[in-house]
Structure formats: structure tokens, C-alpha cells
Design a protein around this nucleic acid. Sequence first.
DNA 1: CGCAAACTTGATGTTGCTCAAGCTAGGTGG
DNA 2: CCACCTAGCTTGAGCAACATCAAGTTTGCG
Lengths: 233, 233
Amino acid sequence: MYADISTAVAPKLETAGLAMCRGLAHQATSRIMAVSAMQKYQPGECLFSEGDDADGIYEITGGMLRLYKLLPDGRRQITGFLGAGQVLGLAPEGTHIYTAEAIAPVTVCRYARAALDRLLDDVPGLARRLLSVTSHELRAAQDQMLLLGRKAAGEKVASFLLLMARHQGDGADGIFIPMARGDIADYLGLTTETVSRTFTKLKLAGVIALPTPNHVDIPDRRRLEDAANGTDG
Amino acid sequence: MYADISTAVAPKLETAGLAMCRGLAHQATSRIMAVSAMQKYQPGECLFSEGDDADGIYEITGGMLRLYKLLPDGRRQITGFLGAGQVLGLAPEGTHIYTAEAIAPVTVCRYARAALDRLLDDVPGLARRLLSVTSHELRAAQDQMLLLGRKAAGEKVASFLLLMARHQGDGADGIFIPMARGDIADYLGLTTETVSRTFTKLKLAGVIALPTPNHVDIPDRRRLEDAANGTDG
DNA sequence: CGCAAACTTGATGTTGCTCAAGCTAGGTGG
DNA sequence: CCACCTAGCTTGAGCAACATCAAGTTTGCG
């Protein structure tokens, strides 16, 4: 009845090519591809961990993964969920500052860091491309700080659902939630129980429908947006 | 008895020059300086606001400012405090995503965005320099997400004090706090009252001393670090 | 000296966490 | 094909941390 995870979370890889090379000349593209390799990861597998040497940069071509940081006692903060077309692993100090782990089966294109670094001075537009990637990550991080520091549970969950909807192309009412409640909780700074209760409240209020725990229908986008900003009752 | 704000928060501008040009050739430096201008802002004045066209990039040469985002109902999240040597205003979509406002009297060097953008393809190393700036911001943002989402009030305040200490050169025990309790609260996702009470608790526990509300002494750095990670009792 | 802004402290309230128990669906083996 | 088992989700009851509301107190400035 519903699409399974592997098809649902890898919706639309641009047939034209990889995001890393978007807007670059053909010759630049082929030089970049020369230092790349495709890899696959199963759910639960790590691409790299916090503290590892950052010797690779990755672009996701399919699937979904979570990025997170841990405190010494095991508390976890998920800093982002990444899907097809997104780039990760650009570490400033040569060391990864978060762990990257597959949620759904992931395929990535891996670029050797040292080689890419050498191309940086050489390939026109590449640095600008990477700057754009990092700036977008930064923008997302700042939105998330506002959410974590100042939004109430209901607003957090509503914001999360809107993010997922936007991420899945905004077209249909129905969105697929590939991650577990515990992952959502660690992303929003809540507990599993609070996330679950908040889903139930939104359902009872008629703002969303939950045909299965992993599928959310949004009959009225506007009401969800109000819930996300506290602009509702 | 204590240094006033203007001297205390502008400790050590590299005499050699501006951070923007760090590591660049002399000729590159002069081309960058050609598109720059010095400006001053008094406490409370805005360099730019969330949503404004991003037509300038700024480097702080002295003073301190706060960056923040607002929710429609006025709740505020401060995403960072910036001091001498830090760069801001690199907006991905041509629109600023936060407001930048002076806390202490600020002097900045402003680079016209369009001009700097043109230099990007032209001046070797400049793109790399900006990439490094953005990557550091991103790293700070991710640390802050962990703090906002998963740390308790005591851990948040202790982390903040360590950040301030690091920022001020780590040398002496005494650090100067140029911002108000309300600013600290909006940075840590707390209220003014909770910040104040938490200072008092740390003082009573002997972890810090508070000779004035704006001066903190840290007799034992290690204990404060434990408090910041929840590694203490 | 008086005022305003910022800080501190206290009393009370609410949100979301903790602990604990059922529920549901998917997968496995008889 | 069905019973069982497990992992993840949901629900409930009680509680703790932090917010809110409301005074005081201190500090710097005109």
C-alpha cells in the first residue's frame, strides 16, 4: 500500500549529474569525478565518526542518513538528516565534528579530501560551490538553534514536519517519515514520548493524519505552519 | 578598579592586519582593502537586520556584537556573540538570515559584497579564506545545537563561561562579561532569572567568583569544565 | 540625590521528563 | 497458516526543572 523506505527516501536524483559539480564546466566535472568513488552503507553503518580524520567529502546520491554529536554520558543531539543531493564532510580542522550514520540504505559519492583540496585552487568555481554548500548548512543550523532554544514541543514537531514536506518536494499532501521517533526526538531536543504525544495531539486537533506511524498527511498546510510558529491558538 | 567595556572587549587585534586577508599575498590584500571601508556602531545599533539585502561583508576590528533571530511573537534566539577578528555577513541567498547589533561600541571593516564577489575568482586563496570562516561558524553552530538541545541549565552556563574564557585568551583567571543577563539567556535558551540563579549556584559551589556582575573569576578551570559536561556530581 | 536599568531572590505554575505499562506490526519458525 | 517474539510506538501517572510573576536590591548616571 505504501512505498517502502528505499524508494521513498531517494526521490529524485538529478539525472544530469552530481550536486558537487552543479554549474561547473564539463572539464571541471571530469577532473572532480576522477578523484571520486561510489560507496554503499546499510542502516546503522557509519560513514565516519566524530573525531575521525576528515579524509573524505561525501555527496549523497540516495537514501538518508543522520548526523549527530554525543555528550560523554551518551546524550545525543542529531544536527541534521541528509538526503539525495546533499554534501557532507567538509571539516575545517581536518577532523570530523559529528558522526554520520545511515538510516535507510545509502549510496554516496566519496571525494578524496587531499585531491579535492588540490583542485580547489585549480578548478574555477569549485571553491564557490563548496562555499555555497557550507553556507546552506550554516543557514539550516541557525534555524535549528532558534527551534531548539525558543520553540515549544508542538512548534518543534510542526516545524519538523514542514521541513520533511519541503524536503520531499512539497507536491502531495502525504509525506514519508524515514526515521524513528527517537531520532526525531534527538533532533528536536525532546524525548521519544513527547514526540509521540505531540503527534497524537496534532492528529486529534485535525492538523495531520497518521495512516501509519511513518506516513503523515497534511490536509491543511497553513494550519501546520501556524502551529510551527506559535501563530495558532 | 576594573577595565571598562571598550578596552576589555577589544583585546588584541593583530597588528599585522585584518583577518579577512590572513595568509594572503600582499597584492591580494591591497585589492581587498580597495573595496573596504571602516565603520563604527554604538551599543544597540544594527549593522543589518534579518531579511535585509546582503550587500556587505563585515570584519570586526573592535568591540562586540550579538547576532540573533526572532520569532513572530518576539521570542529571540541569539546565535552568537562576535568580537575582534571575526567575520560576518556571508549570506548564501543574498539576504541576511539574522540581525547583527552592537553590544559594546564596535568598529568594523566593511567589504562591498559585489566587489568582493568579483575578487573571488581572481584573488588566489580568498575563496579558501571565506570557506574557512564559514566552516568555523558552522562548527560553532553545531556545538551550540548540542548545548541547546541536550544540556541542562547549569551545563549551559558553565559552557558559556568557558567559551568566554577561551575567547579572551585563556590567560588570566578573570574574565569580563560584556553582555547582559538577558542576552546570555537568549543565547542559551533560558530566561534571565534562570541565568542569574545559575550564576549564584556556581558561586555558592565555589566554582566561580563574581566580584561584579560583569566579572567572573575561575579559580579552578577543571571544575568548570566538569560542570559544562555534566561530568561532575 | 533621585531615577532607571539591570540584577537578584522568592513563590508559584507548567511543560516536558522519567518510569512503567500496554499496544501494534513485521518477521520467524513450527 | 498461525503463534510467538521483538522493536518501535503509544499512553498513563508522578515529578523535576525551568518558566512566570512579583518584589526587592544594586549600580551607574543625570
